[in-house]
Structures are given as structure tokens and as C-alpha cells.
Design a protein around this nucleic acid. Structure first.
Lengths: 251, 251
DNA sequence: CGTCTTTTTGACCATTTTCAATCAGTGTGG
DNA sequence: CCACACTGATTGAAAATGGTCAAAAAGACG
């Protein structure tokens, strides 16, 4: 299960951060870039299945995703797992732990991931020197909160069928905005067990539910990937609007 | 349903903030108090059932709770409701909206509440002038995230019986730390419908589940209140540890 | 005392889980 | 190239959990 975890030096300069190309993200000022470039202490690669963060550990680092995908989860003592959210490029990993101490969830890689590495101990500097970036950190935390709110509504109050529709729409929209969709296809390898553990359902029932969505030509499932054939109908089934932020901050 | 919403001037000076007496909260420096005293533009009272914030509105204000309790919730178009979290003294209301614009959840009062009122437009000042308070805002957002993570695990992966045990333990622990417990009794009036909408269950099944907990002498239910007779066993059933932060920040 | 909300109960129904197998696809070593 | 071991996807049948409907009981409150 534990795969290549390589910590390299630095291949991607902050000045040429590839995420700046996307219109989804806000632009940094020169000062900000200079600071971040110094704040960043390196890069890290991690392969599929690698654990980036572990529940109840104290990570010395804070990460931000340049490319690839991962997911956050918690487990009960008896092994039941709940996936809390998915992590895409531009997302921060470990802010909770950095701000409050111990991690209370784990993070596992879904598709080969490249991370910027920051030092947890230098976080206060951000607040001292760059109010704008400090604000962005709060913004990012508030955004995660929103996503979790949606998720809670999803699991708590929607039927299995509606839940799956919501989740697939959500993943599609997020993947699309970070360039992880090709055509109608979600370029993040995900098993039905991942979906089940996100939806709070058993794998078996998740499978039957996906089947039902597929029968109605809303999606197609093949080899750990999902094709979204009819986003609008998925949104309608889930009673969701599927909006995403433009010009959002990241670190 | 819409009850007294009184906006008074100011009865509680920040210098004498009653929450400072509790060891749960961190102490402010003189400078911080001075700033907050200026940042606070007034107080607001709200009665049971009042709506403090409404989904899809843009609130000009940010609130912090001096006393009383409330809850955050979201609704689907067809009326299904999911309660996301409960709000106790020291909690912030509306940070999400302040940071990101539109509110994506509503907030309703559970027991008569007294709020400090801040102006949303002055939020950037906090980041400019008081890095320590800015950090606290991020801290608070990260904490909410944690609570939601726990909640998601609860609804997604625990049985009805375990779920209810977790929720009651959670409410008890939070209420206790903010002085809202007398003896074993939760001094926040809550209906079984509230619990049901938090747990993602129907009222009927929630009732049966509470009954089961009561039969085993873990709780007692009477007149919109819950008595927790055996916290330890509730925690064991839920496989939870029930830790809470000491010395936590608030605004 | 009468009205209203909240809690409780019973009967029946639907959804979802569990268990147990099977099938398909992939990669491995011989 | 094939046998074998794996993982992930699928299916069927039986069982359990939780939902719905409808009504009654119990408090709360003016």
C-alpha cells in the first residue's frame, strides 16, 4: 500500500506557478510571490495509495497541491471508513493540523500527486507579514466548511440515488475546473469503494445505484473512471446548482 | 415563528467580556480588547425560533455569541432539512458569508441568545492590524471543519443507535464547557425533530432510538431536554473520545 | 379548559445491508 | 503463452435497518 514518496528540491518556481494560468485562481502580487517562494521549502511527489497525512500525527508540514488528486478520510476504531472530501490542485493539505496541532484525519493519494511543501512553524509569519495571504487561508478554511456542509446535507437527507448523483456531479465540476476532465471523462481513478465510503453506503448498494444512473444514460462507468453524460440531469436529481467559485485564492 | 429580534446598543463591555471568566477561552491582550471594543458595533438579542441568518442572503454583519444557543442548517428545495452544527457561546456566526460573500446556510435560535455584532466590511482591518486575531479566525474556521468531519463520520458510518449516542455526547460536552449543563441536564431546549434532522433520521426512528438509550439508563428525556446519565458509555458506544479544546480562541 | 406542539406507538413498507458467489480485467511468474 | 492470484465490479437472495402513515397519548401553555 505504501508507495513512492519522493521529496525533491524544486522544479517549479513560484514565479512560474502553473496554477496561475488557470482563470479559476486569483493572481498573486509580486510581493506575495516573493514571499511564497521563500515560504516554500520544497516539493514532494507521492504515488497512488501513499498516505500523506495520518490521523493523530503531528505533521511538521503543510502542503499545497500542484497536480494530482487525493482524499481526506476518518476511520472508526473498528475499521469503518468515511471519506470526507476530495483534494484537487490548488487545495491545501494539513491546515487544520497546522493551526490546531494534531491531525484528526488522514490523507491518501488517488492519482500521482505533486505537492509544494511549507513549514508549519513558519505559518505565523504569513499572518505577520501578509494579511492578504492570511485572509486567503481563512477563505480556504471557510470554503472547506461549505463543501462539508453540502456533503452533510447530501448524506443526511438525500436518498442513495440522489446522493450518488450529487457526488458525481460534484466530482465532475471540481475536476473540470482543475483540468482533470477530458471530454466527459473524470481523469481521477476512483473505485466504487471510494464512492461508497464517501456516500455512507455499502459497496454493493453503491454499485446498484451507479448501475441505475448508467441505465438512464446519466453516466458511464468503466475501469475506475466515470464519464458524466448528462450533468444537468444529475444536478436536477440532486437539487443542486453546481456553482463553483471563480478567481478563488490558493497558497 | 419569527420572534423578537432586538438590536440594543451595548450592555457588555469587551473589557468585561463574561466569556473571559471561563478557562475554556484564551485571554486577550489589552491591545486586542481595545481593538475588539471598537470593532464591535453593538449587541443583538434574539428569541427562540428567530432566524439570525438566511441561506442565500448577504449579511452585513458577523456575530459572536455571548450567551444562548442556535443551530446552522441547510434545506433542499423540497423542504428536507439537515442541521449542520450547533452554536454555543464563544462561537462565531456568519464567518463563511463574511469571507466568501453569500450565505449558504441558515441559522436559527434555540434558546434566547445575546450576540455581539461586528461589521462585515471591517473584517479586512482585523487582518491588517491584528495578525493574532486573524489567526484566531482561521483557527475557528478550522475547528468548525473538524466538527463537521466528525459529524460526517457520524452520519455516514454509524448506525442509528451509535449516531444518537455520539450526538448526545457531543452536545453534552459542548454545552458543559459553556456552562449550559446543570447537573446532568442539557440546558438547551431541543426537540426530537432537531435531533432527527441532525442525525439524518426520521423523527419516529429517532424517538425509538432515544427510547432504547433511555431503557439502558444512558439518558433520560423530558420536556425538550436531555439528561445524560452515563457519558462514558455513550462515548464507548460511539467509539469517540469526547475531547474538547482548552484555551481556545474566540472573537 | 382547550389548543397546540411534541412524543409515543403500531402496522406495514421500502431501502439498504450482508453474505455468498461469480465474473472481468490485470499483472505475475513459470 | 498460460495458469494463477488479485483487485474491482456484479448479481441474487435473505435479513436488517430505518421510513411512512396514521393515530393516540402526554405535556406545555395561554
Amino acid at each position: 500500500m505504501n508507495v513512492a514518496l519522493g521529496v525533491g528540491s524544486r522544479k517549479v518556481a513560484c514565479e512560474k506557478c502553473p496554477l496561475q494560468k488557470s482563470e479559476q485562481f486569483r493572481c498573486f502580487s509580486k510581493d506575495e510571490v516573493a514571499f511564497l517562494s521563500d515560504f516554500k521549502i520544497g516539493e514532494m511527489n507521492a504515488g497512488v495509495g501513499a498516505t500523506i497525512m495520518m490521523e493523530s500525527s503531528h505533521s511538521a508540514h503543510l502542503y499545497s497541491v500542484l497536480s494530482g488528486a487525493a482524499f481526506r478520510y476518518k476511520m472508526l476504531e473498528d475499521g469503518r471508513r468515511q471519506i470526507l472530501n476530495f483534494i484537487f490542485p490548488g487545495d491545501l493539505i494539513g491546515l487544520q493540523g497546522s493551526v490546531m496541532g494534531e491531525m484528526e484525519h488522514s490523507v491518501e493519494v488517488l492519482s500521482p500527486i505533486l505537492l509544494c511543501v511549507f513549514e508549519r512553524t513558519r505559518l505565523p509569519e504569513v499572518y505577520q507579514k501578509f494579511p492578504s495571504l492570511a485572509f486567503d487561508l481563512t477563505w480556504l478554511a471557510a470554503r472547506e466548511e461549505r463543501i462539508l456542509d453540502e456533503n452533510l446535507l447530501n448524506i443526511g437527507r438525500r436518498s442513495a440515488y440522489e446522493r450518488a448523483a450529487y457526488l458525481l456531479a460534484y466530482l465532475f465540476v471540481r475536476a473540470k475546473s482543475t483540468g482533470l476532465v477530458e471530454g466527459r471523462r473524470l481523469m481521477v481513478p476512483i473505485t466504487q469503494l471510494h464512492l461508497a465510503d464517501t456516500l455512507g453506503l455499502s459497496v454493493v448498494h453503491t454499485n446498484r445505484t451507479l448501475k441505475r444512473l448508467a441505465e438512464r444514460k446519466l453516466i458511464r462507468w468503466h475501469d475506475r473512471t466515470c464519464e458524466v453524460l448528462d450533468l444537468d440531469r444529475l444536478l436536477a436529481i440532486a437539487q443542486w446548482h453546481g456553482e463553483l467559485e471563480k478567481d478563488r485564492p490558493y497558497i
